[in-house]
Design a binder for these strands. Structure first.
Length: 276
DNA sequence: CATTTCACCTGGTGGC
DNA sequence: TGCCACCAGGTGAAAT
């Protein structure tokens, strides 16, 4: 998400939305498409960034094009969640639309911001900040959270640490890959009860999570080219992950077989010899 | 309240 | 080639 947000930001920041189109599926519209269309039109894109797993497009005022041409004030937000298969693409406005394109925002520059999502698990939301609050979930940011607060998240919890890591109201932005990879790096078994981890283990986990995420962002960031899609991510995943989707393959540290189990309905990969 | 299960979707893969 | 079971970067409602 971080890589995608940066890529999109670099391509659309400062541009203006001149036309919007939404597909007719009932999903993935958290805000009715007609309201999104009305709200998005004629706004300047001030910036694009990531918050947890959401991509937030910050938008300027609608009623004063001259003032917002210079940028600055945020008065609305377009919030994109990509679900499992969502893509945010920046194309030219005349490029052929991919199958499962649900939203197209035509920009003044001739570019187009598109939302494509085959499985429709993604969500699109529009927020008018004059009428409501800015986007922000309860979950802490894994990249910046400090030791004390991190440990407090898991105190007294009986669920598996893997399940706790995936809970977006505790930590925002940790998905299945990074949960497995950070637990491997920290040497902790995914089934361990969150509340029973020692303070030392929790600190190892916090650092491992941060390092894994930073490493992923570095590699993903280097692979973005003229448009934004998942191609670059494939390279990272194949080359760098230690346990995720490596069931039966030898552990890169000790050589024993990587195991696969199910926790919280999600496939979970770990090394029984390196993780305790 | 905390935790787990399952439906929501389409597409790709591998077995027969 | 066709058919089918199974799996997939996530979440949130319903059940326990």
């Amino acid at each position: 998400m971080e890589t995608i947000a940066r890529g999109v930001n670099a391509r659309v920041r400062g541009d203006r939305i001149v036309e919007a189109w939404f597909g007719s599926h009932r999903e993935p519209f958290k805000t009715p498409p007609a309201r999104q269309l009305k709200g998005l039109i004629e706004r300047r894109i001030e910036s694009v960034h990531r918050s947890g797993k959401h991509i937030v497009v910050e938008l300027g005022r609608q009623d004063d094009p001259r003032r917002s041409a210079e940028g600055g004030e945020i008065s609305a937000q377009w919030i994109v969640h990509l679900g499992m298969t969502g893509r945010l693409l920046v194309t030219t406005h005349d490029a052929a639309a991919a199958k499962h394109t649900h939203a197209r925002l035509r920009l003044k520059s001739g570019r187009e911001l598109r939302f494509v999502d085959p499985r429709r698990f993604g969500r699109l939301e529009f927020r008018d900040l004059a009428k409501g609050t800015a986007f922000g979930g309860p979950g802490a940011e894994p990249l910046t959270i400090e030791g004390e607060e991190f440990a407090e998240l898991f105190r007294g919890r009986k669920l598996a640490i893997k399940a706790a890591l995936l809970n977006q109201t505790l930590l925002a932005g940790v998905g299945n890959i990074y949960a497995d990879e950070s637990l491997f790096r920290a040497g902790i078994r995914p089934k361990r009860r969150a509340g029973k981890l020692t303070r030392v283990e929790l600190e190892r986990l916090r650092r491992a999570l941060k390092e894994v995420l930073e490493h992923a962002i570095r590699l993903g960031g280097s692979s973005v080219s003229d448009y934004v899609d998942a191609d670059g991510m494939k390279g990272f995943f194949q080359l760098e992950h230690n346990v995720y989707q490596r069931t039966g393959e030898p552990c890169r540290k000790c050589g024993s077989d990587i195991k696969k189990i199910v926790i919280a309905g999600r496939s979970t990969h770990y090394c029984a010899r390196c993780q305790h």
